[in-house]
Amino acid sequence: MKKYKITVYDEKTGEKHTIEIEMSEEELEELAKKLAEKHNVKVRIEKV
């Protein structure tokens, strides 16, 4: 498992949230996809 920083940005409201999380790359990609689809936000992932 690796550490990642996830930034979620909502273009409508301008809200931006960043968290650090430790998980596998596959789980992370699935999480990012679900966030983007369900909440209509942009998701950026960076390795820490």
Results as ranks from 00 to 15, higher is better:
38 K>Q: 10
7 T>W: 04
4 Y>I: 03
48 V>Y: 04
30 E>L: 13
31 L>K: 02
47 K>Y: 15
32 A>F: 06
37 E>L: 11
27 E>R: 06
3 K>Q: 12
42 K>E: 08
19 I>Q: 05
24 S>M: 13
4 Y>N: 00
8 V>F: 14
43 V>N: 01
16 K>F: 06
45 I>E: 00
34 K>V: 07
2 K>Q: 15
41 V>Y: 07
5 K>T: 05
19 I>M: 13
41 V>A: 07
24 S>G: 08
29 E>C: 14
42 K>H: 09
35 L>Q: 01
47 K>I: 15
32 A>D: 02
39 H>N: 08
5 K>W: 05
3 K>Y: 08
17 H>N: 09
5 K>N: 03
44 R>I: 15
9 Y>T: 11
39 H>C: 14
32 A>I: 14
38 K>E: 07
25 E>M: 11
21 I>N: 02
16 K>E: 14
16 K>W: 07
9 Y>M: 11
34 K>H: 13
16 K>P: 03
32 A>H: 06
29 E>R: 13
41 V>T: 11
17 H>D: 06
11 E>H: 09
27 E>Q: 10
21 I>P: 00
26 E>S: 10
16 K>L: 13
34 K>W: 09
38 K>F: 11
8 V>K: 01
48 V>C: 13
37 E>M: 08
7 T>H: 12
5 K>V: 08
37 E>P: 02
43 V>R: 00
5 K>L: 10
38 K>I: 12
8 V>H: 02
42 K>Q: 12
48 V>P: 04
18 T>D: 03
2 K>T: 14
32 A>E: 06
28 L>S: 03
5 K>G: 01
40 N>S: 09
27 E>V: 05
30 E>V: 12
40 N>D: 08
22 E>M: 12
32 A>Q: 12
11 E>V: 13
40 N>I: 04
19 I>R: 05
9 Y>I: 11
8 V>N: 00
44 R>H: 15
33 K>L: 07
2 K>S: 15
18 T>P: 01
36 A>V: 07
13 T>A: 03
11 E>Y: 14
3 K>D: 02
30 E>A: 07
41 V>R: 02
45 I>M: 01
27 E>S: 06
37 E>W: 03
37 E>I: 07
46 E>Q: 02
22 E>W: 13
3 K>T: 08
20 E>Y: 15
30 E>H: 09
42 K>A: 06
23 M>Q: 02
37 E>A: 06
35 L>D: 00
45 I>R: 00
1 M>V: 14
10 D>T: 03
47 K>V: 15
33 K>Q: 10
20 E>K: 06
17 H>R: 07
19 I>V: 07
18 T>C: 10
8 V>Q: 03
32 A>P: 01
9 Y>N: 03
11 E>D: 06
15 E>V: 13
15 E>D: 07
5 K>F: 04
13 T>R: 04
12 K>D: 13
42 K>D: 06
48 V>M: 07
13 T>F: 03
35 L>W: 07
26 E>K: 11
6 I>A: 00
28 L>R: 02
33 K>M: 06
16 K>M: 11
12 K>A: 13
37 E>Q: 09
47 K>D: 15
39 H>G: 14
3 K>F: 08
45 I>P: 01
25 E>A: 06
44 R>G: 05
47 K>S: 14
27 E>H: 08
23 M>K: 01
31 L>S: 01
12 K>C: 13
43 V>Q: 00
45 I>V: 08
39 H>M: 09
12 K>Y: 10
40 N>K: 05
14 G>K: 07
39 H>W: 04
28 L>A: 11
14 G>V: 01
6 I>W: 01
24 S>H: 12
9 Y>L: 07
12 K>Q: 10
14 G>N: 05
40 N>T: 05
38 K>G: 10
32 A>C: 13
4 Y>E: 00
45 I>L: 02
34 K>P: 00
30 E>Q: 11
45 I>T: 01
10 D>F: 12
39 H>S: 12
6 I>H: 00
25 E>I: 09
44 R>A: 10
44 R>C: 15
18 T>L: 05
33 K>H: 08
25 E>F: 10
3 K>M: 12
3 K>C: 05
28 L>V: 14
10 D>Q: 05
41 V>M: 05
41 V>F: 10
29 E>F: 12
35 L>H: 01
16 K>C: 14
12 K>I: 13
34 K>Y: 12
8 V>D: 00
24 S>Y: 14
22 E>D: 08
7 T>D: 02
9 Y>S: 06
43 V>P: 01
1 M>A: 13
45 I>K: 01
22 E>H: 10
29 E>L: 13
40 N>M: 04
29 E>Q: 12
31 L>P: 00
22 E>P: 02
32 A>W: 09
40 N>A: 05
33 K>R: 11
1 M>T: 13
22 E>Q: 07
18 T>V: 13
31 L>T: 04
20 E>S: 05
24 S>L: 13
19 I>F: 15
26 E>H: 08
18 T>K: 03
45 I>C: 06
20 E>R: 10
7 T>N: 01
30 E>Y: 11
13 T>D: 02
43 V>S: 01
12 K>H: 10
5 K>P: 00
15 E>R: 07
29 E>S: 08
2 K>H: 15
8 V>G: 00
7 T>C: 08
41 V>P: 01
43 V>W: 05
10 D>A: 03
3 K>L: 10
23 M>Y: 03
16 K>R: 10
15 E>T: 11
25 E>G: 04
15 E>Q: 10
8 V>C: 14
12 K>T: 13
28 L>H: 01
8 V>E: 04
34 K>N: 07
34 K>R: 13
33 K>D: 03
33 K>V: 07
32 A>K: 13
5 K>Q: 05
42 K>F: 04
30 E>N: 10
12 K>V: 12
20 E>A: 05
13 T>N: 06
13 T>H: 04
3 K>A: 08
24 S>V: 07
6 I>Y: 01
30 E>D: 11
27 E>I: 04
25 E>N: 04
28 L>M: 12
6 I>R: 00
5 K>Y: 04
38 K>C: 13
48 V>Q: 04
30 E>I: 12
1 M>I: 11
8 V>P: 00
17 H>K: 08
47 K>A: 15
1 M>L: 10
42 K>N: 08
6 I>C: 01
4 Y>A: 01
36 A>Q: 11
21 I>K: 07
27 E>L: 06
13 T>M: 04
18 T>Y: 09
27 E>Y: 06
24 S>K: 10
24 S>D: 09
24 S>A: 08
28 L>Q: 02
32 A>T: 10
10 D>I: 06
42 K>I: 15
22 E>I: 08
43 V>H: 02
48 V>G: 03
11 E>Q: 14
17 H>T: 12
4 Y>H: 02
41 V>S: 08
7 T>V: 04
36 A>G: 09
24 S>T: 14
46 E>F: 02
16 K>H: 11
46 E>A: 02
30 E>K: 13
